[in-house]
Amino acid sequence: MRIAEVIRRKGADVVTVAPDTGVAELVALLDEHKIGALVVSPDGGTTVVGIVSERDVVRHLHTDGAGVLERTVAEIMTDEVQTCAPEDELESLARRMTDLRVRHLPVLVDGHLHAIVSIGDVVKNRLDELQDERDQLVTYVQQ
């Protein structure tokens, strides 16, 4: 299965945040949208300059204490963003996410943000595939 199929099933909506947004506002956005990461984009979602996750907040909370809430997203984001493309295979993406220990990958088309895929999306689709295979085997055995 390709990433395009995952996006077709879940949708291509991506919540973005500007680099100059405060971390306190970032935390509110993560909570509001019930998500674990936001793509950092200075132009509202066309270009990707970083990704910022709950992990980034927690790591800086450990080193900076509550003062992290006074900082900007640009100060705590990950700027070396791992990305993928719609034509990438789900299986290879799962391996890559595991090896790199990342939970969110922006999906780019022609260098522009198209969607985002999380490890949860990958796991859900794999479980759906396994259930489909199981159902087919049960049907075959019962015939």
Rank of each mutant, 00 (worst) to 15 (best):
V81P: 08
A4Y: 01
T63R: 15
I35H: 04
V27Q: 00
T72E: 05
N125S: 10
H33T: 03
L130V: 13
Q82R: 08
V23G: 08
E25C: 00
I116M: 10
L61F: 14
L113N: 06
T21V: 15
L26Q: 01
M97R: 05
I76G: 00
L30W: 04
D121G: 04
D110E: 15
S118H: 11
V40L: 08
V117T: 05
T78I: 09
T63P: 00
K124L: 12
A28R: 11
V15M: 03
D121N: 05
V81H: 12
K124N: 14
D79G: 12
D43K: 05
H60L: 04
T16D: 07
R95Y: 15
D132T: 13
V49M: 01
E32G: 03
I35R: 06
A66K: 11
V15T: 07
V81R: 10
H114A: 09
S53K: 04
G65N: 09
I51E: 08
V107H: 02
E75Q: 13
I7K: 00
I116T: 04
G50Q: 09
D56P: 02
A18V: 05
A24Q: 10
H104M: 10
T63M: 02
D128W: 09
E133V: 15
E89C: 14
P86W: 03
R55H: 11
D132E: 14
L100Y: 09
L127K: 12
S53W: 07
G36C: 02
G11L: 07
A24L: 13
L29R: 14
R9H: 05
M97S: 04
D20F: 15
H60Q: 15
A24I: 10
A18I: 05
D99I: 15
T78P: 02
Q82A: 10
V68K: 06
S118K: 11
D88T: 04
K34E: 14
E25H: 07
G120A: 14
D88M: 08
D13F: 10
E75K: 04
L108F: 04
D121R: 02
E75S: 11
I119L: 12
G44T: 02
T78N: 09
V23C: 04
D43A: 01
M97I: 05
S53E: 08
V81A: 09
L127G: 06
H33V: 02
R96M: 11
L93D: 00
H112T: 15
P106N: 08
G22D: 06
H112K: 15
T47H: 14
T72K: 03
T21P: 00
V23N: 01
D132N: 14
S92G: 10
V52L: 03
A115D: 14
M77A: 09
V52R: 07
L108T: 07
G45F: 06
R71N: 05
V109T: 14
H62L: 06
A94V: 01
D31K: 13
L130P: 06
A115L: 04
A18K: 12
G45Y: 06
R95I: 11
N125Q: 10
A18R: 15
Q82F: 14
I119T: 01
D13H: 10
E89T: 15
T21Y: 03
S92C: 03
I51W: 10
D121A: 05
N125G: 04
L26Y: 08
E25T: 12
K124A: 12
G67Y: 02
L38H: 03
R9S: 11
T83L: 04
P106A: 12
E133W: 14
D110H: 13
L38K: 10
D56H: 08
T98K: 13
L93E: 07
V17L: 05
V49Q: 10
G11S: 01
R103D: 02
